[in-house]
Nucleic acid binder design. Structure first.
Length: 450
RNA sequence: GCCCAGGUAGUGUAGUGGCCUAUCAUGAUUGCCUGUCACGCAAUCGACUCGGAUUCGAAUUCCGACCUGGGCGCCA
């Protein structure tokens, strides 16, 4: 047994390890005595005989105070040479002082410029001057240095953790399904074609068919959090060509059961974020953060249409899709998260199970935030003959669905599931005006870089 | 794809035919300043998306292209 390696056992030329040896800024207190910190130069204020540098790492900001007559030549040269957003390491004694932000400041014995930032910067990290989203996304690595922006992604991470935790604890198996697929087994959304050796292939629009195959595989409860790709040429604040989808599929469950799971998941996720991310929520400036109350209304589609009729000018009738304006009108009436249930079979996909007593409506649902749709799902038709019949009813050719249909011939349990848009979940949770704010490197019709 | 609004220093903006050698803020450079915290002061630097047209004269009007934002459509 060799001893556990330590930092000091590393070769002396392993400079990179020394960089790790610094105190996170939030942990620097007057009680620290002296500290070695590393981070980005947030601002420099030179008052003549006295200069202040604000140093920022992901944990916070600290003031470094430089009394010019009392510090070394090396420190003076570094203060003069450094630019905003450069990476520096600073070490020296920590002093308690009321005048300094956070009640403490660091007086440097040494300042090392690890990486000098070019000037001028593509955007103002200190937020004195705003920047448009397009400018921010072009320099996303600088944009995310702004604590208010980083907070969004810390919350997104916490939300994903909560979702994984909830589903894992509920007995779900996490799966990963292929994103490169041979063909669409349905019409509908446009797919991105890709070059796959000498074959035609596409980026997958949804893990749906694979989730269902896992029901035939006997896994009973599966989930996946992963990317989906849609080649639609839409340009809106809530659509992306690459999105993150949270998908579940459950055997021996109906649509009502998976709706309960979804509702509980949303409440759990909000609750976890509220509990663990209060600083980030405050930082972003969300004032009305509230965990949704249990018992999301189950609004039948027919009633939703009636509400929409009263709320909007454009004509809308039973059998129409719900337009964005109708979505907003219904959302305003409902005031919180809600489900739309009992959709006309005609406007839902072939795989949705129809009601026994009224085949004109089906066991599909959407879960809505007052601003927009977050999730859609259904109890699936698991009976082979019915499924083939429904494919034909949609005017589609069952022959081209063989890949999808095969598992249904060898013992497919009844099952239901849904897909939930992770990006929209974060967007609506934090009241962001554009879904791109909730995505580090969004992909839309016009943006492929960075 | 359609409709609307836009495109002015690194960033965010003002400027609707001559008063523009283009405003303000921030920034960058240089100098002064010992308690700043959007530090202050002084000087300097830095821009009209591209192409065509109208006009004595275009940042400003018109046409086209490209790009951006918003709305719609599309989004099993």
């Amino acid at each position: 047994m060799s001893p556990e390696p330590t930092i000091t056992s590393l070769p002396p030329d392993a400079h990179c390890y020394r960089i790790l040896m610094r105190t996170p800024i939030a942990q620097v207190t007057p009680a620290s005595g002296s500290a070695e910190i590393a981070g980005w130069v947030h601002e420099v204020r030179d008052l003549g005989g006295l200069a202040f540098m604000l140093i920022r790492d992901r944990t916070g900001i600290i003031q470094v105070t430089i009394p010019k007559k009392k510090v070394s030549e090396q420190v003076l040269a570094a203060v003069k040479a450094v630019s905003r957003e450069s990476v520096v390491r600073v070490s020296g004694p920590v002093k308690a002082i009321d005048k300094a932000p956070g009640g403490r400041e660091l007086v440097p014995e040494s300042i090392e410029i690890i990486s000098l930032a070019e000037t001028p910067l593509p955007l103002d990290v200190s937020e004195k001057v705003p920047a448009e989203l397009d400018t921010r996304l072009d320099a996303r690595f600088l944009d995310v240095r702004r604590p208010r922006v980083a907070a969004v992604f810390e919350i997104r991470s916490a939300a994903c953790y909560a979702i994984n935790q909830f589903l894992h604890d509920a007995g779900f198996t996490a799966i990963t399904t292929p994103k490169i697929v041979a063909a669409a087994t349905e019409g509908g959304t446009e797919l991105f074609p890709i070059a796959y050796f000498d074959k035609e292939a596409f980026l997958n629009q949804s893990p749906q068919l694979y989730k269902q195959m896992m029901m035939a595989a006997g896994c009973e409860k599966v989930y996946e959090i992963g990317p989906i790709f849609r080649a639609e040429e839409h340009a809106t604040t809530k659509h992306l060509n690459e999105a993150t989808s949270i998908d579940i599929e459950v055997s021996f469950a109906d649509h009502l059961e998976v709706m309960r799971i979804l509702e509980n998941l949303i409440i759990h996720t909000y609750g976890y974020v509220e509990k663990t991310c209060s600083a980030q929520i405050a930082n972003i400036g969300v004032e009305d953060f509230a965990v949704p109350k249990a018992g999301f209304p189950r609004l039948p589609y027919a009633e939703a249409i009636e509400i929409a009729k009263k709320g909007i000018e454009e004509p809308i009738k039973y059998g129409d899709d719900i337009s964005p304006a109708a979505e907003r009108a219904i959302g305003a009436e409902m005031g919180g998260h809600y489900f739309i249930v009992d959709w006309p079979s005609e406007i839902r996909p072939y795989y949705a199970m129809q009601h026994e007593n009224d085949p004109s409506i089906c066991k599909a649902f959407d879960m809505m935030h007052p601003r927009m749709e977050l999730s859609s799902g259904a109890q699936r038709e698991h009976r082979y003959d019915r499924l083939v019949q429904q494919i034909k009813q949609k005017g589609l050719n069952p022959g081209s669905f063989e890949f999808y249909l095969k598992p249904f011939r060898y013992g497919m349990p009844p099952h239901a599931g849904w897909g939930l848009g992770a990006d929209r979940l974060v967007m609506t949770m934090l009241g962001l005006s554009n879904v791109r704010e909730a995505v580090l490197f969004p992909r839309d019709m016009h943006r492929l870089v960075p």
